[in-house]
Computed example of a mutant assay.
Amino acid sequence: METGRARALAGTALVGGGALTILGFVAAEALYPGYSAADQRISALGAASAPAASQTTFNATMVLSGLLVAFTAYALGSVYERPLFPGVFAVTGVGVVGVGVFPTQTGALHYVAAFVAFGGLGLSALAAAATVRGPMRYVSAALGVAELAAFVAFVSLGGGTPLGIGGLERWVAYLGLAWVLAFGGFLLGGVDAS
């Protein structure tokens, strides 16, 4: 695939996937009466105990977003010579798909997928920082470190913060999504990143 086309497709997929994920979270929350963003995890939106509309919205969002991330990894292989960055991003996409395919009631499969998705977003941002030039290198490094720090806090502290377990998990998710949207815009901006 030609580099300019690959960059445009990857950027479009990232911006689309990031926006889809945010809107999917918001829609699933609206379709779940009594849902608490502080007291419940994000994945509760797709659990068997959630209303059917919330389950369908959340799980479909995760599968579609994960497929967009996996497609982005494929396209990035035509943009960057270093295979580490697209490889880490591909694994992240598999994790995101897994969150939707294996809802929280599936136990270990869900938690492994969520771990891969969250950890993969932070590692993808750091891999991007090691790959690109210019200001996006620093933006990627900062957001990658912040997302991984929030992920460690989420795993170690759980609901033991004023944000609650759901609020702290949103720090992890939204820092990762901030990087996805920023990097997508970077690719679409046509900045020489190779």
Rank of each mutant, 00 (worst) to 15 (best):
D39R: 14
A13Q: 10
P135N: 03
G166I: 05
V180I: 14
A90I: 03
A153T: 02
G93H: 04
L188W: 07
R82N: 15
T92E: 14
E169D: 10
L188G: 03
L9Q: 14
A37N: 06
F89P: 00
S194Q: 12
Q55V: 02
P135H: 05
V139F: 07
L175R: 11
M136Q: 06
L126W: 09
A146P: 04
A10F: 13
G164R: 05
G134R: 04
G46R: 00
V101L: 14
V191R: 15
A48M: 08
M1I: 00
F154R: 08
L143T: 08
G87N: 10
V139H: 05
A75S: 00
A142S: 13
S156Y: 03
P86Q: 02
Y35A: 01
G100D: 08
A44L: 03
G190D: 06
Y111D: 15
M1W: 09
V99Y: 04
G77Q: 00
P103L: 01
A30Y: 12
A114Y: 03
F102D: 00
G107S: 06
V132K: 02
A117W: 12
I42W: 13
L45G: 04
S124T: 15
Y80V: 13
G134K: 08
A130N: 03
A146F: 04
G17D: 09
A141P: 03
E169F: 11
Y35M: 01
M62N: 12
Q55W: 10
L14H: 06
A193R: 14
G34C: 09
L148N: 08
A90R: 01
G158L: 09
G98T: 04
S43C: 14
A19E: 03
L9C: 05
A73N: 04
A153P: 04
D192F: 02
Y32H: 15
G166R: 14
G66A: 09
A173S: 15
A117F: 15
F186D: 03
F154M: 13
R137S: 12
